[in-house]
Design a protein around this nucleic acid. Structure first.
Lengths: 348, 348
DNA sequence: TCTTAACACGAAAACGTTTTCGTGACATCT
DNA sequence: AGATGTCACGAAAACGTTTTCGTGTTAAGA
C-alpha cells in the first residue's frame, strides 16, 4: 500500500525543486514547456492530487460547512440536508454534519468540535432544549470569532444572524382558513409548548384566522403537547391526550396540527372514535413528511419546502463566505419561504 | 470581529516563544509553574483552541470520516447516519457526508473530493448505477492509496474490504416462512432487478423458503420492478404493475416485498381491488421505515437495524484507523446483522 | 574553584501547499 | 565590451501546530 504522492516526492524524483513542480502543475509561464510536460506526465502517472488539508491551512479556508440539526431520522431535516449538500457540492464545499438530538449540551459540544478551524461556517437549527433554556452564548461566541451562522426553521429573534424560515404564521393561517371555508365550525389546534418558536407562530396563525372570521378561540380546543419526551416512543401518551381532547369536545369538526405526528395521531384517534375523515372531521398538518402522502386517508398538508430551505441557507452562507466581507457593516438577511397547501383526502 | 487566536499571538503577547506556549498549555515539565500559570490564564481568557486543520496536517490524521450514501431522505439511510454519527462523535471523529443520488458519476466525484486528504476513511453504500455498471475502480483506487473503506448494506463480493450487512437471505426466508405458516398458499414476491445485491439475496431467501416447504415457485408470482426510475415520482407506474400482478393471479394470498414502498403499494392496490388485509392477503415488507408503523393496517416488517449497522460500520472503520495497521496482512471482516420480524396488522 | 546536573526556555524542523522574490545563464542591443 | 533584458528555476516564507534538540543560567557537589 502506497501513500498519496506529494509535491516533495515528485520534486525529488524528477530532480527539480518543489516550487518548480507546483508551478509546472499550474502551467506557470515561468516554467519551460519541457519541464511542464515532464512534471505533468509524472503527476498524472502517479495520480497526484493536492492535499486538501495543506491547502486549507495555507488558504485559511476549509471549503467545508457544518450543519447542526436536532434529528436526522426526520423528513424535514433530511430534506434540508439534501438541499444543503446539493448547493454545497455544486459550489465546491463539503458538508460536515452534527446531531444535537434536541440536547443543548450536545449542540454546544458539536459546535465547539467544529468551530476550531474545521469549517468555514455553520448552518443550523436550534435544539428544543436550547430554545427552552434560552441560552445562546455558544452562537454568539462562534460568531464573534468571525464564523458566520445561518439558522433555519427554528430561529429566535434574540440572535443576530442570517436566517431562512418558512412563513409559519401565514401557512398556519391559510390552512385554518381552508378549514373555515370548508364549513368547519369547531376547529381544534394541536400544537407544541410556546418555547418552540415555530409552534408558537403556527399557533398565532391559527388564532388570527379564527379572529378574522369572527370565531372566538376556545381554550378547550387548543392542546399544547409537552414534547420534551421523545414522542415517537411515547405515542400512546400522545394519543391519550388527543383522545381526551376529542372526548371533551364532541363538536370538533376540524383539526389543525403543527406537525405530522400530531396530525396522524389525530386521524388515528378520530377513526378509533368512529369519526369519518373528512366527513365528520377534516384534518390538516404542517409538515413535509412522507407519511402524509401514504396515509389512509392521505393528509392535507402545509408544505414547508424543506429542500429549498436547505438550498437557500447554503447559498446564503457561501455568498457570505465568498464576499470579501467587510467585517463590520454586518447586514443580516432573513429569507422567508412561502408555504403551499397540498390538498389531499383529509379535507373536502 | 476578531479572528481566532493562535499560539503565535499568545507568544508575542506574553513575550515568550511559540514552543513555550505550546508546552505550557500541555503542562509540560519543561516549563516553570509561573509560566504555565501565566500562559494558561491568557489562553483561557482569549478562549484559545488549537486549530484543527493545523493538527490534521501535522499528524497526518484528520479525525474525520466520510460517508457516501445514495439517498438521505430515506429512513434506512438516515438511521445509518445516526448510528455512524453516534459512535464517531463518541470516539472523537467528525462525519462528512456525500450523496450520490444513486448516480455512479456523483459517487466517483464525491469520493475524489474527499479522498485528497480531507478524511481518514470511508463508510459507504453503493449506488444502484454503480451496482449495475459493475465499475468499481474508484473503490479500488481509493483503497490502494491506503484509505480504508467500510461498505454497508449494498455490497458486492468483488470488492475486498470490511463490510456490514444485514442477513438479507435469512430475513427474507423467515418472512416467507411466516406467511407459509399462516396458511398462505400463493405467495407473491415484489422485488428489484437482480443487479441490486440486496434485492437478489432477498429473492433467494424467498425461493429457499418456498422450496423447503415443497412449494414450487411460480414465475408469474414474481414481479421484478425496474427501479431505475425514481419510484417516489412514478408511484402510479409502480401501482399499475402491481395491479397487473394481482389481476392475473387472483389466488394470491400473501405478498413479500423487498422494500417499504413496494409493500405499501401492494397493500394499497389490494385494498383497491376489494381485498382485505390480512384476511384475504397478508403482506410483509423488508424495511426499517416509519411508514410501516403508521400505515393502516400497519405493516409487518423484517427490521434491518439500520442504526446498529451504522454504529458497527463506524466502529469497524475507526478500529482499523487506530490500529497501528500492519498495512500488508490485510484481513477484512464482514459483519452480519440478524434481522427481526416485527409483527403488525398486515399478517395474522 | 571547577565540574556537573537540573532547570527553563528557544530554535528549528516537519506536515503539504502556494507564491514572492532572488539569481545565474544566456541573448540582445548599443 | 558593457549594459540590459529575458528565461527558467530555486530558496524561503507562510498557514498553525507539536516535538526534538540545543543552550544559557543557576545550583549543587567535589
Amino acid at each position: 500500500m502506497k501513500r498519496k504522492i506529494t509535491l516533495k516526492q515528485i520534486a525529488r524524483e524528477l530532480d527539480v525543486s518543489i516550487s518548480t513542480v507546483s508551478k509546472a502543475l499550474r502551467n506557470s509561464a515561468e516554467i519551460s514547456a519541457d519541464t511542464i510536460q515532464k512534471v505533468q506526465a509524472f503527476a498524472k502517472l502517479y495520480n497526484y492530487r493536492p492535499n486538501n488539508i495543506a491547502l486549507s491551512l495555507k488558504n485559511r479556508k476549509t471549503n467545508t460547512i457544518g450543519i447542526i440539526i436536532p434529528e436526522i431520522v426526520h423528513h424535514f431535516f433530511s430534506k434540508v440536508i439534501r438541499g444543503v449538500e446539493l448547493v454545497a457540492n455544486k459550489r465546491g464545499y463539503n458538508v460536515i454534519i452534527g446531531l444535537s438530538n434536541e440536547s443543548f449540551s450536545k449542540e454546544v459540544i458539536n459546535m465547539e468540535m467544529l468551530a476550531n478551524g474545521s469549517i468555514d461556517g455553520f448552518i443550523l437549527s436550534m435544539s428544543k432544549e436550547t430554545l427552552q433554556q434560552q441560552d445562546y452564548h455558544h452562537f454568539n461566541e462562534t460568531m464573534s470569532q468571525g464564523m458566520p451562522i445561518v439558522m433555519f426553521d427554528r430561529v429566535v429573534s434574540e440572535i443576530q444572524c442570517d436566517k431562512v424560515i418558512v412563513d409559519d404564521f401565514k401557512g398556519a393561517k391559510t390552512a385554518v382558513e381552508k378549514l373555515i371555508n370548508n364549513k368547519c365550525k369547531h376547529i381544534a389546534l394541536i400544537t407544541t409548548k410556546d418555547y418552540v418558536s415555530v409552534g408558537k407562530l403556527r399557533t398565532q396563525g391559527y388564532l388570527e384566522a379564527l379572529e378574522e372570521h369572527k370565531i372566538t378561540p376556545k381554550a378547550d380546543l387548543i392542546l399544547k403537547v409537552d414534547d420534551t419526551l421523545d414522542y415517537e416512543v411515547h405515542l400512546d401518551a400522545l394519543e391519550a391526550e388527543i383522545e381526551q381532547l376529542f372526548k371533551s369536545n364532541k363538536s370538533i369538526d376540524g383539526v389543525f396540527a403543527v406537525n405530522e405526528l400530531y396530525a396522524l395521531s389525530a386521524m388515528k384517534v378520530a377513526r378509533k372514535l368512529g369519526l369519518n375523515i373528512p366527513n365528520d372531521v377534516q384534518v390538516i398538518g404542517f409538515t413535509d413528511g412522507v407519511l402524509s402522502k401514504h396515509a389512509t386517508p392521505s393528509l392535507t398538508t402545509v408544505s414547508q419546502h424543506a429542500q429549498q430551505m436547505g438550498e437557500k441557507a447554503a447559498d446564503l452562507l457561501i455568498d457570505k463566505l465568498e464576499s470579501d466581507y467587510n467585517d463590520e457593516d454586518e447586514v443580516y438577511q432573513t429569507l422567508v419561504i412561502a408555504t403551499d397547501l397540498v390538498e389531499r383526502e383529509s379535507t373536502k
